[in-house]
Amino acid sequence: MMPGSLRAACVAVLRRDLLLAWRRRGDIALPVLYALIVTTLFPFALGPNDDLLARVAGGVVLVTVLLAMLLAFDALFRPDLEDGSLEQLMLAPQPLALLLGMKILAHWVSTALPLIVIAPILASMLHLPAHANAVLVLALLVATPLLSLLGSVLVALTAGTRRSGMLLALMLLPLCVPVVIFAAGAVSAAQEGLPWIAPIAWLGAALALMLILAPLACAAALRIAIDA
Protein backbone atom coordinates (compact mmCIF):
# COMPACT_ATOMS: atom_id res chain seq x y z
CA MET A 1 0.00 0.00 0.00
CA MET A 2 1.68 3.17 -1.18
CA PRO A 3 1.22 6.07 1.22
CA GLY A 4 -0.51 9.09 -0.22
CA SER A 5 -2.06 7.02 -2.98
CA LEU A 6 -5.76 7.17 -3.72
CA ARG A 7 -6.43 3.87 -2.04
CA ALA A 8 -4.38 4.68 1.03
CA ALA A 9 -6.22 7.98 1.43
CA CYS A 10 -9.64 6.34 1.09
CA VAL A 11 -8.69 3.66 3.58
CA ALA A 12 -7.31 6.28 5.97
CA VAL A 13 -10.50 8.35 5.92
CA LEU A 14 -12.80 5.35 6.17
CA ARG A 15 -10.75 3.81 8.97
CA ARG A 16 -10.58 7.07 10.87
CA ASP A 17 -14.33 7.72 10.79
CA LEU A 18 -15.26 4.16 11.68
CA LEU A 19 -12.71 4.19 14.50
CA LEU A 20 -14.11 7.48 15.80
CA ALA A 21 -17.64 6.09 15.63
CA TRP A 22 -16.45 3.04 17.54
CA ARG A 23 -14.73 5.15 20.20
CA ARG A 24 -18.02 6.97 20.69
CA ARG A 25 -20.30 3.99 20.31
CA GLY A 26 -22.73 5.49 22.82
CA ASP A 27 -23.60 8.03 20.13
CA ILE A 28 -24.49 5.21 17.73
CA ALA A 29 -27.15 4.02 20.15
CA LEU A 30 -28.88 7.41 20.31
CA PRO A 31 -30.64 7.39 16.91
CA VAL A 32 -31.68 3.79 17.53
CA LEU A 33 -33.16 4.75 20.87
CA TYR A 34 -34.89 7.72 19.30
CA ALA A 35 -36.48 5.49 16.63
CA LEU A 36 -37.64 3.08 19.31
CA ILE A 37 -39.26 5.86 21.34
CA VAL A 38 -41.03 7.43 18.37
CA THR A 39 -42.40 4.08 17.20
CA THR A 40 -43.61 3.25 20.69
CA LEU A 41 -45.56 6.49 20.82
CA PHE A 42 -47.69 5.67 17.76
CA PRO A 43 -49.82 2.92 19.33
CA PHE A 44 -50.54 5.27 22.24
CA ALA A 45 -51.66 7.98 19.82
CA LEU A 46 -53.62 5.72 17.44
CA GLY A 47 -55.01 3.15 19.87
CA PRO A 48 -54.06 -0.54 20.16
CA ASN A 49 -55.98 -1.47 17.00
CA ASP A 50 -53.80 -4.10 15.30
CA ASP A 51 -55.30 -3.68 11.82
CA LEU A 52 -54.85 0.08 11.86
CA LEU A 53 -51.27 -0.23 13.15
CA ALA A 54 -50.43 -2.84 10.51
CA ARG A 55 -51.70 -0.51 7.80
CA VAL A 56 -49.53 2.44 8.88
CA ALA A 57 -46.53 0.38 10.09
CA GLY A 58 -44.41 0.66 6.91
CA GLY A 59 -44.85 4.41 6.64
CA VAL A 60 -44.29 5.01 10.34
CA VAL A 61 -41.03 3.06 10.41
CA LEU A 62 -39.78 4.77 7.24
CA VAL A 63 -40.49 8.26 8.53
CA THR A 64 -39.02 7.40 11.92
CA VAL A 65 -35.79 6.16 10.34
CA LEU A 66 -35.68 9.29 8.21
CA LEU A 67 -36.06 11.54 11.26
CA ALA A 68 -33.45 9.59 13.21
CA MET A 69 -31.02 10.01 10.32
CA LEU A 70 -31.81 13.71 10.18
CA LEU A 71 -30.80 14.04 13.84
CA ALA A 72 -27.46 12.39 13.14
CA PHE A 73 -26.63 14.43 10.02
CA ASP A 74 -25.18 17.31 11.99
CA ALA A 75 -22.29 15.11 13.10
CA LEU A 76 -21.22 14.47 9.49
CA PHE A 77 -19.03 17.57 9.11
CA ARG A 78 -19.37 19.72 12.21
CA PRO A 79 -16.80 17.99 14.48
CA ASP A 80 -14.31 17.90 11.60
CA LEU A 81 -14.97 21.56 10.89
CA GLU A 82 -14.44 22.54 14.50
CA ASP A 83 -11.12 20.77 15.04
CA GLY A 84 -9.67 21.67 11.63
CA SER A 85 -9.50 18.15 10.20
CA LEU A 86 -11.97 19.11 7.48
CA GLU A 87 -9.41 21.66 6.23
CA GLN A 88 -6.77 18.96 6.16
CA LEU A 89 -9.15 16.81 4.14
CA MET A 90 -9.92 19.63 1.70
CA LEU A 91 -6.22 20.33 1.19
CA ALA A 92 -5.30 16.71 0.57
CA PRO A 93 -3.96 15.94 -2.92
CA GLN A 94 -6.70 13.39 -3.61
CA PRO A 95 -10.06 14.36 -5.18
CA LEU A 96 -12.20 15.77 -2.38
CA ALA A 97 -15.36 14.12 -3.73
CA LEU A 98 -13.85 10.67 -3.26
CA LEU A 99 -12.74 11.36 0.30
CA LEU A 100 -16.16 12.79 1.13
CA GLY A 101 -17.70 9.67 -0.38
CA MET A 102 -15.73 7.66 2.18
CA LYS A 103 -16.93 9.93 4.98
CA ILE A 104 -20.54 9.49 3.83
CA LEU A 105 -20.06 5.72 3.69
CA ALA A 106 -18.67 5.64 7.22
CA HIS A 107 -21.50 7.86 8.43
CA TRP A 108 -24.07 5.58 6.79
CA VAL A 109 -22.51 2.52 8.39
CA SER A 110 -22.49 4.08 11.84
CA THR A 111 -25.95 5.70 11.81
CA ALA A 112 -28.22 4.14 9.18
CA LEU A 113 -27.10 0.53 9.43
CA PRO A 114 -28.07 0.14 13.12
CA LEU A 115 -31.45 1.66 12.23
CA ILE A 116 -31.94 -0.89 9.45
CA VAL A 117 -31.09 -3.65 11.88
CA ILE A 118 -33.72 -2.48 14.34
CA ALA A 119 -36.35 -1.57 11.69
CA PRO A 120 -37.88 -5.07 11.35
CA ILE A 121 -38.30 -5.21 15.12
CA LEU A 122 -40.03 -1.84 15.14
CA ALA A 123 -42.22 -2.91 12.22
CA SER A 124 -43.29 -6.13 13.89
CA MET A 125 -44.15 -4.20 17.04
CA LEU A 126 -46.67 -2.47 14.77
CA HIS A 127 -47.78 -5.86 13.31
CA LEU A 128 -46.37 -5.46 9.83
CA PRO A 129 -46.72 -8.88 8.12
CA ALA A 130 -43.47 -10.81 7.72
CA HIS A 131 -43.25 -10.72 3.91
CA ALA A 132 -43.84 -6.95 3.90
CA ASN A 133 -41.21 -6.67 6.61
CA ALA A 134 -38.62 -8.21 4.28
CA VAL A 135 -39.55 -5.69 1.60
CA LEU A 136 -39.25 -2.92 4.19
CA VAL A 137 -35.68 -3.94 4.99
CA LEU A 138 -34.85 -4.11 1.30
CA ALA A 139 -36.41 -0.69 0.73
CA LEU A 140 -34.41 0.74 3.64
CA LEU A 141 -31.19 -0.79 2.32
CA VAL A 142 -31.66 1.17 -0.90
CA ALA A 143 -33.37 4.28 0.49
CA THR A 144 -31.07 5.08 3.43
CA PRO A 145 -27.83 5.36 1.39
CA LEU A 146 -29.77 7.55 -1.01
CA LEU A 147 -30.87 9.76 1.89
CA SER A 148 -27.33 9.85 3.27
CA LEU A 149 -25.98 10.99 -0.09
CA LEU A 150 -28.69 13.61 -0.63
CA GLY A 151 -28.40 14.79 2.96
CA SER A 152 -24.63 15.12 2.75
CA VAL A 153 -24.96 17.78 0.04
CA LEU A 154 -27.27 19.84 2.23
CA VAL A 155 -25.19 19.31 5.37
CA ALA A 156 -22.18 20.56 3.40
CA LEU A 157 -24.15 23.68 2.43
CA THR A 158 -24.97 24.43 6.07
CA ALA A 159 -21.44 23.63 7.28
CA GLY A 160 -20.45 27.28 7.54
CA THR A 161 -23.52 28.32 9.53
CA ARG A 162 -24.52 28.33 13.17
CA ARG A 163 -26.33 25.27 14.56
CA SER A 164 -28.87 24.41 11.95
CA GLY A 165 -31.02 21.36 12.73
CA MET A 166 -34.37 22.89 11.79
CA LEU A 167 -32.98 24.48 8.64
CA LEU A 168 -31.59 21.14 7.55
CA ALA A 169 -35.01 19.50 8.01
CA LEU A 170 -36.60 22.22 5.91
CA MET A 171 -34.01 21.81 3.17
CA LEU A 172 -34.13 18.03 3.21
CA LEU A 173 -37.91 17.66 3.00
CA PRO A 174 -38.27 18.42 -0.75
CA LEU A 175 -35.41 16.04 -1.51
CA CYS A 176 -36.71 13.13 0.50
CA VAL A 177 -40.33 13.30 -0.70
CA PRO A 178 -39.68 11.06 -3.74
CA VAL A 179 -37.56 8.64 -1.67
CA VAL A 180 -40.29 8.27 0.96
CA ILE A 181 -42.98 7.86 -1.72
CA PHE A 182 -41.17 5.05 -3.52
CA ALA A 183 -39.96 3.23 -0.41
CA ALA A 184 -43.36 3.36 1.27
CA GLY A 185 -45.00 2.50 -2.06
CA ALA A 186 -42.99 -0.71 -2.25
CA VAL A 187 -43.92 -1.72 1.29
CA SER A 188 -47.62 -1.05 0.88
CA ALA A 189 -47.63 -2.85 -2.46
CA ALA A 190 -46.07 -5.88 -0.79
CA GLN A 191 -48.66 -5.63 1.95
CA GLU A 192 -51.48 -5.75 -0.59
CA GLY A 193 -49.89 -8.64 -2.43
CA LEU A 194 -49.04 -6.53 -5.47
CA PRO A 195 -45.68 -6.53 -7.33
CA TRP A 196 -43.31 -4.28 -5.40
CA ILE A 197 -40.09 -4.53 -7.34
CA ALA A 198 -40.64 -1.48 -9.60
CA PRO A 199 -40.37 1.25 -6.93
CA ILE A 200 -37.32 -0.49 -5.43
CA ALA A 201 -35.74 -0.59 -8.87
CA TRP A 202 -36.41 3.14 -9.29
CA LEU A 203 -34.76 3.81 -5.94
CA GLY A 204 -31.82 1.65 -7.00
CA ALA A 205 -31.43 3.62 -10.22
CA ALA A 206 -31.50 6.88 -8.26
CA LEU A 207 -28.93 5.47 -5.84
CA ALA A 208 -26.59 4.49 -8.68
CA LEU A 209 -26.85 8.00 -10.09
CA MET A 210 -26.36 9.66 -6.72
CA LEU A 211 -23.33 7.54 -5.88
CA ILE A 212 -21.57 9.46 -8.63
CA LEU A 213 -23.24 12.87 -8.42
CA ALA A 214 -23.74 13.43 -4.70
CA PRO A 215 -20.06 13.33 -3.61
CA LEU A 216 -19.19 15.75 -6.41
CA ALA A 217 -22.04 18.07 -5.42
CA CYS A 218 -21.05 17.66 -1.77
CA ALA A 219 -17.47 18.72 -2.52
CA ALA A 220 -18.66 21.74 -4.51
CA ALA A 221 -21.11 22.70 -1.75
CA LEU A 222 -18.44 22.39 0.91
CA ARG A 223 -16.07 24.66 -1.00
CA ILE A 224 -18.83 27.27 -1.26
CA ALA A 225 -19.80 26.99 2.41
CA ILE A 226 -16.24 27.14 3.78
CA ASP A 227 -15.01 29.94 1.54
CA ALA A 228 -15.69 33.19 3.38
Binding site: L157, T158, T161, S164, L167, L170, M171, L173
Partner: peptide
Protein backbone atom coordinates in the same frame (compact mmCIF):
# COMPACT_ATOMS: atom_id res chain seq x y z
CA UNK B 1 -35.21 26.42 2.58
CA UNK B 2 -33.43 28.75 0.15
CA UNK B 3 -34.44 31.83 2.15
CA UNK B 4 -33.47 30.15 5.43
CA UNK B 5 -30.07 29.07 4.17
CA UNK B 6 -29.37 32.54 2.77
CA UNK B 7 -30.03 34.11 6.16
CA UNK B 8 -28.10 31.47 8.13
Amino acid sequence: GVIGLYHA
